[in-house]
Design a protein around this nucleic acid. Structure first.
Lengths: 183, 183
DNA sequence: AACCCCATGTAAGGCGTTACATGATTTC
DNA sequence: GAAATCATGTAACGCCTTACATGGGGTT
C-alpha cells in the first residue's frame, strides 16, 4: 500500500498527527498522491498495530486532543525496504483519452471545445506548480535545512511540470490539426 | 463510470461479446484504460438493464454460447452526451514519484538503480507503442475504412508517446544530476 | 449569522483486482 | 502432455470517496 509508505515517509521527518499529515499531502505531494482524512485515520491505526508507529495523546483544553504518531525503528526499516523495491510503471487511466479515442462521434466544434477546456485546465495546473509548489519547497528547505531532501522534492516537481507541458503542447497541436485539416 | 462509456464506444462500431470487447481493450486502449472480464461481464448486464444495450444469444456447438451485445438508440445518446461533457484532469497517482520524493533516505547507488530500472521500463513501453500500437491502428483503418476514427486513435497514441518520451528524458536528466553533483 | 479552522472518527457504497469455477478445442 | 484460446460468470477483498457525526474557537 502506497498510502502507508507515504505516511511513513512524512513521519520520518518528524512526529505528527493525522490532521498534520493531511496538510503535508495537500501542500506538497497532492499533485501525484493524496488521501482523505477518513482514510488516513484508520490507516495510522493499522500502522500502529503493525508496530511501525507509536502514538501519544497530547491533551488540549479548548480543542480536541491530538494523537501524535512517531515512526519506530521497524517503521524506518519498512520504509527503506519499500523505497529500494523496484517500482512498476503507474497505469495512466485517463477518461479524457477515452473521449478523444471515440472523438469521431463528435462534431468538429464539440471536439474543439473539449480540447480547449482541457488545455486551460493544464495551463492552470502548470501555473500552480511554478508558483505555489516551487515556493513551498524553497521555504521548506530554508526552514528545515533539508537540502538533500529538497533536491528530490524538486525532481518530482520537475516531472510534474514536464507532464503539464506535454499535455499543453499536445492539446495545442491537436487543436491546430483539427482546425486546419478537418470536416 | 468510464468503463461503461468505453464499452458503449466500442459497441458503437459493431455488436460484440464481452470476450470480444476485452480483446479490443487489450489491443487498442490498454495503455490508458483496461478492465478484466470479471468486471466487463456484470457491467454489460447492468447496461442492458439500463436500456443502453440489447443482447442476443448465439448458440455454438463445441464452444460456450456467445452473448452478443448491440448498442441501442438510448445507448448512443448516452455516449454522445458523455463525450461532450467536460472532462476533469485525471489525477496522477504514481507510487514511483513517492519513492523519488522520499529519495533522500536512499544511498546514491540505490536511487540510481531505481531510476535506471524505471528508464528501461519506459523505453520498452515506448517501443511497443511505436511498433505494435501504430501498426494496429493502420490495419484497423485499412480494414474498416474508419479514417475519421483513425485520426483520433492516432491522437491518443501521440499522447502516449509524448508521455513516455517525457519520462525517459526526465529519468536521464535525473540520473545525470545525481551522478555528477551528488554524495 | 455564517463560515473556516482544529481534530477525531464510523459507515456505506463504488470501482477494481484476485481467486474460484467450468470445460471443450487447438496449438506447441 | 502442457498451454493457450474460446466463453461465461460469482465471491471475496482492497482501496478510495462520500456522507454522517461531534463540537469549541476564531474570522468575516
Amino acid at each position: 500500500m502506497s498510502l502507508t509508505h507515504a505516511l511513513l515517509g512524512f513521519l520520518g521527518y518528524q512526529p505528527m498527527t493525522g490532521y498534520d499529515l493531511k496538510q503535508r499531502f495537500d501542500r506538497s505531494i497532492y499533485y501525484f498522491w493524496n488521501a482523505k482524512l477518513s482514510q488516513i485515520y484508520p490507516t495510522l491505526s493499522k500502522m500502529k498495530e503493525e508496530g511501525w508507529l507509536t502514538m501519544e495523546v497530547e491533551h488540549q483544553e479548548d480543542r480536541p486532543n491530538r494523537k501524535v504518531y512517531s515512526i519506530t525503528a521497524a517503521g524506518r526499516e519498512e520504509l527503506h525496504r519499500w523505497l529500494r523495491e523496484p517500482a512498476a510503471v503507474a497505469p495512466i487511466r485517463d477518461t479524457f483519452l477515452i473521449k478523444i479515442f471515440f472523438g469521431g462521434k463528435l462534431e468538429k466544434e464539440e471536439m474543439l471545445a473539449q480540447l480547449r477546456h482541457h488545455l486551460a485546465l493544464h495551463q492552470e495546473q502548470l501555473a500552480a506548480y511554478q508558483e505555489t509548489v516551487r515556493e513551498t519547497i524553497r521555504q521548506n528547505v530554508k526552514a528545515t535545512g533539508q537540502e538533500r531532501e529538497g533536491f528530490f522534492w524538486g525532481l518530482t516537481l520537475d516531472r510534474g511540470i514536464e507532464y503539464e507541458d506535454g499535455w499543453i503542447e499536445w492539446c495545442q497541436e491537436a487543436i491546430a490539426k483539427i482546425e486546419t485539416n478537418f470536416k
